[in-house]
């Protein structure tokens, strides 16, 4: 049975995880791309990512692209499963409750 996930349920984190869920398992998204997409600040996005990383829902990889430091974010298998269960639980509420 699918369960709601309190960590993912927070609206900003739900947007972040939803965006990352559109990528396949071997893909990752750059920090500033995700920040601009959802009109967040560096600090706000960083704080939410730390919470998701602590739960092992996302993985962060720091690297250099054209000599500039970049952080790439990917949804882990655990995060993908939690998101999928969360969405199923939401759909079930819509279906079951009149």
């Amino acid at each position: 049975m699918a369960n709601l996930d309190n960590l993912i349920h927070q609206p900003v984190r739900l947007r972040i995880v939803s965006s990352l869920s559109t990528l396949s398992e071997d893909e990752s998204m750059e920090f500033t791309f995700l920040r601009d997409l959802h009109e967040l600040t560096d600090g706000n996005l960083g704080a939410h990512l730390r919470k998701l990383e602590d739960a092992s829902y996302v993985s962060l990889e720091k690297t250099f692209v054209e000599r500039k430091p970049r952080t790439f974010i990917a949804l882990t298998r655990k995060g993908r499963k939690a998101f999928s269960e969360h969405v199923k639980a939401l759909e079930k509420i819509l279906k079951d409750k009149p």
Partner: peptide, 22 residues
């Protein structure tokens, strides 16, 4: 969680995934 809140959350998911894909 009530039905309206679930609907709003699913709408957030839909908008975020559409925005990202585009």
């Amino acid at each position: 969680m009530d039905r309206n809140e679930a609907h709003e959350s699913l709408e957030i998911v839909r908008q975020a995934t559409d925005l990202t894909r585009q």
